[in-house]
Design a protein around this nucleic acid. Structure first.
Length: 338
RNA sequence: GGGGGUGUGGUGGAGUAGUCAAUCACAACAGACUGUAAAUCUGUCGGCCGAACGGCCUUCGUAGGUGCAAAUCCUACCGCCCCCA
């Protein structure tokens, strides 16, 4: 019905929604039906070893079987291809970083663009699925990120200063940025200063208006919607089954592998609360049952729900999203789009 | 039965005569977001009016009392807690 189709722009589908909304399944469904491949847009699913806590789609097993069919040479883990399939559908940008290293939007954007191209070259439809709004917008809406990688040393130094000091400094060095920045947000202030100190001059005024970002793709935005109460229930059920599925072990493993408590704290949600709890608990008591008795569990539940709301706050301002509450609706929209 | 303590907004918990609709934390609600984004940060949070300065009303277990003035002092009652019997 809408004839605003842009023939020269490649078509890309984006599926967004809060955590536990069922995006991943919808993604696979559409990928099957419309010959697509999936690009995950999740800032935590990029990490290896963070599976249960991030709700990564299960990796197909037969793939490994296939690769290691020759039992004579012990190839159990010689999965060189690194390709991630779930239910036969190729997924990109999962398991591409170590939890010990830093991953950034910039990196995501670059890899994402590559993935989109790869999929298009196969004459398939890229389907971006995820809950990290910032990553999605960076990838799909032409965000212009300044070429300034993180500077650990500088950050450490600036970290010592107070927000007021940092803001004052920024005001002097880059008054334009100072006008729009959140003057209380230390992390942002530090990054802003990092940029100036690297570039030397104030950054050019960027397209900050959300609506003004012009995509080079023709996009179909699908949003998976739930009544809030229902979503909260789903979140609880999902958390409980995650715990049963070995969530705690996953965190223990990460700790052992050297990710560090500080790092885990920063990952948030499950990784934050469970690692905090593990730190003060006797190994003997580290079971799902024990965890569920604690305040950490209650807190975690609240945190996940809050997180889902924050996600919605982000998505709400994107007026292009078609909110659907059934896969049929999604399919219909997709048919219209293609 | 005797002695002591305590009762505050959705919760925890400050306040102990005026500057108190009442610090703070949590929860709740709303929002921001250009290289940590599941992170980080902001606002509102008794009711009514107001864009705002502000104004009015109802609150600190209940009922009385003393004060110009009470969440804060006194008395009684009710509830909870602790100690001695």
């Amino acid at each position: 019905m809408k004839e605003k189709r842009n023939q020269n722009k490649p078509q890309v589908i984006v599926i967004v929604g809060p955590t536990a909304s069922g995006k991943s399944n919808l993604g696979i469904l559409l990928a099957r039906k419309f010959n697509g491949e999936i690009i995950s847009a999740d800032s935590r699913q990029v990490y290896k070893g963070m599976d249960i806590g991030t709700g990564k789609v299960p990796k197909d097993k037969n793939q490994r079987l296939y690769l290691s069919h020759d039992r004579s040479i012990n190839t159990t883990f010689k999965n060189r291809t690194n390709k991630y399939f779930s239910e036969g559908i190729r997924h990109y940008l999962l398991d591409i970083a170590s939890p010990k290293q830093n991953f950034t939007v910039d990196r995501y954007k670059k890899l994402g663009e590559k993935a989109i191209q790869t999929i298009l070259n196969k004459n398939k439809i890229p389907i971006i699925v995820g809950g990290t709004g910032f990553y999605i917008d960076a990838l799909v809406r032409n965000l212009n990120l300044p070429e300034v990688p993180p500077n650990k040393k500088l950050r450490k130094e600036l970290e010592k200063k107070t927000v007021e000091e940092l803001f004052a400094k920024l005001k002097k060095l880059d008054p334009t940025r100072a006008k729009t920045i959140d003057s209380h947000n230390k992390r942002r202030l530090i990054r802003a200063l990092e940029i100036i100190s690297a570039i030397g001059t104030p950054i050019p005024v960027l397209n900050t208006k959300y609506e003004k970002l012009n995509s080079k793709y023709s996009l179909l935005w699908l949003g998976v919607k739930w009544p809030q109460k229902k979503l909260a229930e789903r979140i609880k059920l999902r958390l409980d089954s995650r715990l049963e599925d070995g969530m705690i072990k996953e965190v223990q493993k990460l700790i052992k592998s050297g990710a560090g408590y500080h790092r885990l704290f920063n990952f948030g949600l499950e990784y934050r609360q469970i690692s905090l709890w593990l730190k003060i608990t006797k190994p003997k008591l580290q079971t799902p049952k024990e965890f569920k008795k604690t305040e950490y569990y209650q807190k975690l539940l609240r945190e996940i729900i809050k997180y889902s709301k924050r996600q919605m706050t982000w998505f709400k301002r994107n007026k292009e999203i078609n909110w659907v509450d059934s896969s049929n609706q999604a399919i219909k929209s997709t048919q219209n789009f293609l």
